[in-house]
């Protein structure tokens, strides 16, 4: 299984929400999980264009799956997620939630490594109605799939 985190403006910037790639263990809001935090245990601000991913912690289940090696976690930037959302809308007629758009964006990297026999399932976990304001402000109109 592959999990896709929000890289925001990039993993090398201060503006991302990639807790599993960049975080360390700690307690926030009653959960012990990976956290974005400084050396004194103060929690840092996260950033993602997707409200649901804009959080400095992550579910303890994901933390456990990472430690078990059961899931490989990768990350996708804001821009890549927006492009993928536009692609899914144009090809499938489905407006995905920004969170799920991160998963679609990873297909660009994943598909070239697969063979014709492989079956790839994407979890489209939410709908994009809630993100229309964000999509509209990104001026995606007129941009078509390559």
């Amino acid at each position: 299984m592959i999990g896709v985190e929000a890289a925001g403006c990039g993993l090398n910037t201060q503006k991302h929400a990639a807790t599993l790639s960049k975080g360390t263990p700690g307690v926030l809001h009653g959960s012990f999980s990976y956290l974005l935090q400084d050396k004194n245990g103060q929690v840092e601000l996260a950033h993602s264009i997707s409200a649901g991913l804009d959080y400095p912690g992550v579910g303890p289940e994901h933390s456990a799956l990472k430690d078990l090696g059961r899931v490989k976690y990768v990350s996708i930037t804001d821009t890549q997620a927006l492009e993928a959302a536009s692609m899914v809308a144009q090809l499938e007629g489905i407006i995905p939630a920004l969170e799920s758009a991160h998963a679609f964006a990873h297909l660009d990297k994943l598909m070239p490594t697969t063979s014709k026999k492989d079956i790839v399932v994407v979890n489209l976990s939410g709908r994009g109605d809630k993100d229309m304001m964000t999509y509209a402000s990104q001026n995606l109109e007129g941009k078509s799939v390559k």
């Binding site: 700690g26 307690v27 926030l28 935090q37 050396k39 245990g41 103060q42």
Partner: peptide, 8 residues
């Protein structure tokens, strides 16, 4: 709160 204590 717990986190700074765990880090210490």
């Amino acid at each position: 709160y717990l986190n700074p204590i765990l880090h210490y």
